[in-house]
Computed example of a mutant assay.
Amino acid sequence: MTDYSDVINAREAARILGLTKSTLQRRIAAGVVPCRKLPGRLGQFVFDRAEIEHLAAEKATR
């Protein structure tokens, strides 16, 4: 995730995946959802839209 042109926040990632933000946070902690944390004490998680859409497509085919 080096190109930040199509980066989304946790709310958008949760919406695409059909999850609540708390479920998304648990999946991040488990290493299931790839993300980056912005620097700082309250650093926000950011996600690559293509990776999240790929995970959503995999979820839909199960």
Rank of each mutant, 00 (worst) to 15 (best):
M1E: 00
M1S: 02
M1V: 02
M1G: 01
D3C: 03
Y4E: 13
Y4R: 07
Y4Q: 10
S5D: 02
D6N: 03
D6W: 00
D6H: 10
V7D: 12
V7K: 04
V7F: 08
I8M: 06
I8C: 05
N9Q: 02
N9D: 07
R11T: 14
E12K: 15
E12H: 12
A13G: 07
A13N: 03
A14W: 00
R15V: 03
R15G: 09
R15S: 07
R15E: 09
I16G: 02
I16A: 01
L17F: 02
L17D: 06
L17E: 07
L19K: 13
L19P: 09
L19I: 11
T20N: 06
T20R: 11
T20L: 03
T20M: 06
T20Y: 03
T20H: 05
T20D: 04
K21G: 10
S22F: 10
S22T: 15
T23Q: 12
L24G: 06
L24K: 05
R26E: 07
R26M: 09
R26T: 09
R26N: 11
R26F: 01
R27W: 07
I28Y: 02
I28F: 00
A29T: 11
A29C: 06
A29I: 07
A29P: 05
A29K: 13
A30H: 09
A30C: 08
A30N: 11
A30F: 01
G31T: 09
V32R: 05
V32E: 11
V33T: 14
V33R: 05
V33G: 08
V33D: 08
V33Y: 01
V33F: 03
P34D: 03
C35M: 12
C35D: 09
C35H: 09
R36L: 15
R36D: 10
R36V: 15
L38S: 04
L38A: 11
P39Q: 11
P39C: 08
G40M: 04
G40D: 07
G40K: 01
G40L: 08
R41M: 10
R41I: 11
L42N: 10
G43M: 00
G43F: 01
Q44L: 14
F45S: 09
F45G: 04
F45N: 10
F45D: 08
F45C: 10
F45M: 04
V46F: 10
V46K: 07
V46T: 14
F47E: 10
D48Y: 06
D48F: 03
R49P: 01
R49Y: 06
A50Y: 13
A50V: 14
A50R: 14
A50E: 15
E51K: 14
E51L: 14
E51S: 14
I52K: 09
I52N: 12
I52V: 15
I52S: 12
E53M: 10
E53D: 08
E53W: 04
E53R: 09
E53C: 04
H54A: 15
H54Q: 15
A56L: 08
A57Q: 13
A57H: 07
A57C: 05
E58R: 10
K59S: 15
K59G: 14
K59Q: 15
K59H: 13
A60G: 11
A60L: 14
T61K: 01
R62W: 11
R62E: 14
